[in-house]
Structure formats: structure tokens, C-alpha cells
Design a protein around this nucleic acid. Structure first.
Lengths: 250, 250
DNA sequence: CGCCGGTTTGACCCGCGTCAAGTTGGGTGG
DNA sequence: CCACCCAACTTGACGCGGGTCAAACCGGCG
């Protein structure tokens, strides 16, 4: 039952907003096409005009752009429950690409269906709008990091953010996460190079902050990592207090 | 007549969206309190809970945050017609501050009034949502710059962006703008230091790209500046083709 | 006239990029 | 079941873009 877009979506909306049973029923009535997408595939490409929104049900995706020199900057990561291109509802020409970083299960909902849902259920419209605003809040957080924090702090921040977001969708029983990102991908999100990311992660491991092997990440000292990354989860705007307290014990 | 929030707002909405006469009338009926704010004053402070939105009518403002070390990162600049804290409609605890960079004239609209306007006029709701999405698109653009472009490119990009946004609200008859930003403020937006910004601007002047004195900026070679900054105004999502072509001749 | 915020310039330094050369380990085919 | 491959990871040597520190300079304003 977790592997279905309507469920993922209504669960997400409950996480961030106040929606009632009728709203939820309307969400569950959305027409959705499900699709599996392979690791590394572009789901939407920069410049494309889209007529549907994606709901990420399972797997990890990112949004990115390339500079003229061919350097890649990852703009956002997405975990199950996210609606990575909800903004396309109003801006349907994509100004960046959107790709699967693992094998993913994705639900597609036509824009018109979302439109009419918004007209019928203002609460849902508000919740969806809020979802795009949280997206924006995360962008702001990244801007501050990229502009004013050291490579190590940015890395710490990102690890905390991802941990918290993964945790908020119930995918992390304890402080161990599945984080299927290569160091290259981390570097492209952090505005660093692989070499630097590698050294930062090595230092974190030596300092006893994390433990990482392949796609497994264990945060061994949440408090120190969060402090180093100046991480305060308020900007994620989860309503549940559980989701916004430290990882400590749950 | 330009100096009134209802006008500024309906004008902005027409710039980005399709609103009809009735929508516009509803916008003009919004209750607005006008206020003058001095240069340098914080209009909203991080952590504050707000119950109203601001419409910038005249002057320049920015949004910013400080790191724990006290470094400042400017997250966004705003020109007349912008609604800098529209996101507060759904996220009313501010995760950053919002300050006047010149003496400003600002209109305040209570959230409830915006809410009921959105319920009555779905087109206006869509336009306002779009406005917040464009805000987000600008954030993405800044992320790419901060992560992957050189200091000089970022600076060029920012100058182009501000020129285009100022121009879109009709405040620039030719290629000369009033840009009342200190080099310090530019540096805080660009993730650089004053020293570097100063050198970049000196080089731009020597290369014949710009001419700048005090709060006056002249872009002498739009094409080269835009190329250097990898600037493509698509992300600003203006509907008017005039606003999205190069500065060249209008 | 003198103050002061903003600008300009020089000298030096460091975080991170660049280049290059391994190493490791999961997946594949023989 | 082993040999090989290749993507991801790791480490070292070195250089550069931009930060830091410090000292003028400039011009508007009280």
C-alpha cells in the first residue's frame, strides 16, 4: 500500500498541512499513471514542455542544470513522497532537468486533474502551494550554504537535511539511512569536486561523525554534525514535532 | 498613480499571468496600509510571525540570513512591484529577514484579505502562486551560479538579472539603471568579499562592459555581459516578449 | 573642515580545484 | 568459480581563485 502515488501524496500533504477526510478522498481520486524508471534516466529534460506532474513513490531523484562549460549543478534532491516538478503546473516549460538517481517508481498526474482538484478543494490547493514554498525554503537554505559556508559545513548540512527528509517519510528506523548517492553527485550538489567531498567524508568518518559505505549512511553523532552544518530543520516546515526534533532516539 | 500598491500589484500580475478585468478589480479592492521605511531598516526579522504581506511600491529591498560566524548571505533582491514575503501566506514564521536597502514605500495587505481574494478569484490565486514559483526559479538560478560559476560570471549574471527586472517594471528607459547597492551588498549576494567584487567591477569597467558610479549602473555591452554571466532571462518567466529580449534597443 | 561609510589597491595566504595515479569491489561473462 | 572490467573511491602533489589583512583614498554631509 505504500507503493502507490495517491497514498504517497496524501501522506505528504498530511505531513505539511491540515487536510480533512474529504480532501484526502479527493486526492485519492486523482487519475495516476504509474511507471518504473531506470537509474540515471532523465525523466524530464530542460526545455521540455510538460503537461503532468510527477509524484516520487520509490527511489531517489535529483534536479540539475549544466553550465556552458559543462559543469553540473544539482539543484535539489527528492525522496519518496516529493512532487519534484509541481511548479510545472504554472511554469510548464522546464528550466532544468529531472533525473532518477536509482531505479524509481513514479506516478504521473495530468495537470488538468490537479487544476480541477485545486478548484474543488482549496485546502489541497493551499497544501500544494505550501509544498512548492517548502521547495523554495530549501533553495534558500542551499543558497546560504553555497555562499557562506565551508565545504565541510555544507556537506554536514546536506547529510542532515537528507537524513531528516528520509526520516520524515518513515524510511529510516534509526540513524542508518540508505543514501544511494555517489561522491560525484554529492559534489555536484555541494558546489565542490569529488576530491574535496572524498576528503571531507574521510575526515567526518575519522572524527566519528558518520560511517559510510556504498549507499549506506550512519550518522553516529547527530549533534556535532548538525552543529558543524549549522543545521536547523525549521526550514523544512514539517508539522509533526517528531520529524523536527533531532535524530537522537525516537 | 504608480505609487500605490494596488496598481503595482495588478501591473505585476499582468506581467506574469493572464488576469481579466474582474480579477483586476478584485485586486484593486484589497485593503492596503501604506508605509514609508528608511534605508537599512529591517521590515521583517527572522523568526517573526507575520500576518500580512508586503508589496514593494518604491525602493529596493533584500532578504538575507546570517551564518553563525556572522557572515551575511543575501538571498534575494526586490524591485518595485515584487511581493517579497508572499510565501508568508503559507509559512508565516519567517526563516530569514527582509530589509530596505533604500528609503522604500511599501504596502501591507493582511493575509486574510489575500486568502479571501484567492478563494473568490482562482486566476489571481494562480498568478500569486506563479509569483512565488518565479521567486523559486530565481533561487535555482542563484544556486547554479554560486555552485558552479566564477565570481566574475556570477557578478555579470546578477547585473543582467537586476537590469532586466528593473526594466520589466518600467524603471529604465535605456541601458542606464539606478542600482543603489553597495559593493558590500553585492558581495553578500554573490558569496564573495567586497575586495573581490571591487576587482571584478573594475575589470568590467576596463573591458568596457559597464560603467558604474555611486548608484548608477550603465550596461555598455549587454551581449558580452550576458554571455559572461551565462544569462538567459527565460527563468524570470515574463510573458511580454519585450521584457525578455536583450536590452539592445527598445 | 573633519568625519565616516564606501571604495580602491597591494601583499600574502589558504581552501579547494586540478591533475594524475592508484585501489577497491560489485557485476559479468567465459 | 575465477578473471576481468569499470565505475566509484582514494590519495598525493601542486596551483589558483578568492579570502584576509592593512592601508590609503574619495566624496557627501553635518
Amino acid at each position: 500500500m505504500k507503493f502507490d502515488a495517491q497514498n504517497a501524496l496524501s501522506r505528504r500533504l498530511r505531513l505539511i498541512a491540515d487536510i480533512d477526510a474529504e480532501d484526502e478522498a479527493a486526492v485519492r481520486a486523482l487519475p495516476v499513471t504509474h511507471r518504473e524508471v531506470d537509474d540515471g534516466v532523465d525523466i524530464v529534460t530542460e526545455g521540455e514542455t510538460v503537461r503532468q506532474c510527477c509524484i516520487l513513490i520509490d527511489g531517489f531523484t535529483c534536479r540539475y542544470r549544466h553550465t556552458l562549460e559543462g559543469k553540473r549543478q544539482i539543484i535539489a534532491f527528492h525522496v519518496p513522497g516529493d512532487i519534484p516538478d509541481l511548479h510545472s503546473l504554472h511554469i510548464n516549460q522546464m528550466d532544468h532537468s529531472f533525473a532518477a538517481m536509482t531505479r524509481c517508481r513514479i506516478g504521473f498526474v495530468p495537470h488538468e486533474a490537479v487544476w480541477s482538484l485545486c478548484l474543488k478543494r482549496p485546502n489541497v490547493a493551499a497544501a500544494l502551494w505550501l509544498e512548492t514554498l517548502i521547495d523554495g525554503a530549501i533553495f534558500r537554505e542551499w543558497i546560504v550554504g553555497l555562499g557562506r559556508l565551508s565545504g565541510a559545513s555544507r556537506t554536514a548540512h546536506l547529510l542532515c537535511e537528507l537524513a531528516m527528509r528520509i526520516r520524515s517519510v518513515g524510511l529510516a528506523p534509526d540513524n542508518v539511512y540508505r543514501l544511494p548517492l555517489t561522491q560525484n553527485e554529492l559534489a555536484d550538489a555541494l558546489g565542490l569536486t569529488v576530491v574535496t567531498v572524498n576528503r571531507v567524508l574521510r575526515d567526518f568518518k575519522l572524527a566519528g561523525l558518520i560511517d559510510r559505505s556504498r549507499s549506506r549512511l550512519e550518522i553516529k553523532d547527530w549533534n556535532r554534525l548538525a552543529e558543524l552544518g549549522e543545521f536547523d530543520p525549521k526550514y523544512l516546515h514539517f508539522r509533526s514535532p517528531i520529524a523536527t526534533t533531532g535524530i537522537a532516539r525516537q
